[in-house]
Design a protein around this nucleic acid. Structure first.
Lengths: 133, 133
DNA sequence: CCTTGACCTTTCCATGATGGGAAGGTTTAT
DNA sequence: ATAAACCTTCCCATCATGGAAAGGTCAAGG
């Protein structure tokens, strides 16, 4: 399989596959005489794993860790769970931060007439210290 | 006021103030003979505006727009409100994406024993196509 | 007057994950 | 033989931010 085909079947772009190889996330594939990378079905499997982990928001560093656990028959599932729990905590923090922004912005936007006049509570809210009340 | 002081009073780092100047988000300040940037109270005010907008998650591009509206006495508040609404929609999309990740990950993590054994539904979920059920 | 420490200056590099594009080689099909 | 569709490496860009280097300036104290 050339890189284009494995990209198609794994959902990871050829660009990213080369990148993952360059940072050592995946092992360098074999090459044809012309220098083309050659992949097997298990490479596609691995890339799909990475793709799904990315879709769940894991960083490449965390994925590196997940892959080493995946690869280790003597792993403890507790280690995987701990990694997942840490990531969930991170997601929670990000969701909370975005939700706070959204709430503040909604409050300001709701107070804004949104007409042809210049008076705007949104700009006022940005210009003045956020009132605690 | 030197850059350090205005950084302290505005909450924007000196590094970022120079950066904002270099990309034209704020005008270049006057300089002392020695080349030190000099700021006035209104510069601190402007930087605080930028800081609050950043805290609400606006991009520098959006802030550029917000600043031009802030500066325009003939603005229509509808334009500000539209910008805010677009940003709220963006926040909503990001919150939804993160919430989806969190839910999927929680489902997998809850099924994981988290003990010394290698069997792990989290890794299985990443290795296999997510089941639709 | 000189030193020291706390400022300031510019410039280059790094992050994280991804994409774009250039310049060139290969393979395949017409 | 040629064109299309691949592939290769290398460099650059994103976005907002920080770090560090190498050097100039200023104020306080010996």
């Amino acid at each position: 399989m050339n890189i284009g085909e494995v990209a198609r079947t794994s959902g990871v772009s050829a660009k990213m596959i080369r990148h993952y190889e360059s940072i050592g996330l995946i092992r360098a594939s074999s090459r044809t005489q012309a220098g083309y990378r050659q992949y097997q079905a298990r490479d596609a499997h691995l890339l799909r794993f990475i793709r799904r982990a990315r879709d769940l928001g894991f960083s490449l560093g965390q994925i590196r860790h997940l892959l080493s656990l995946w690869d280790d028959p003597a792993r403890a599932s507790a280690d995987v769970k701990r990694l997942a729990a840490a990531h969930i905590a991170d997601l929670d923090a990000r969701i909370a931060a975005l939700t706070d922004m959204r709430a503040t912005l909604m409050t300001l936007a709701q107070a804004c007439h949104g007409d042809h006049r210049p008076d705007c509570p949104i700009l006022q809210g940005l210009a003045e210290p956020p009132s605690a009340s």
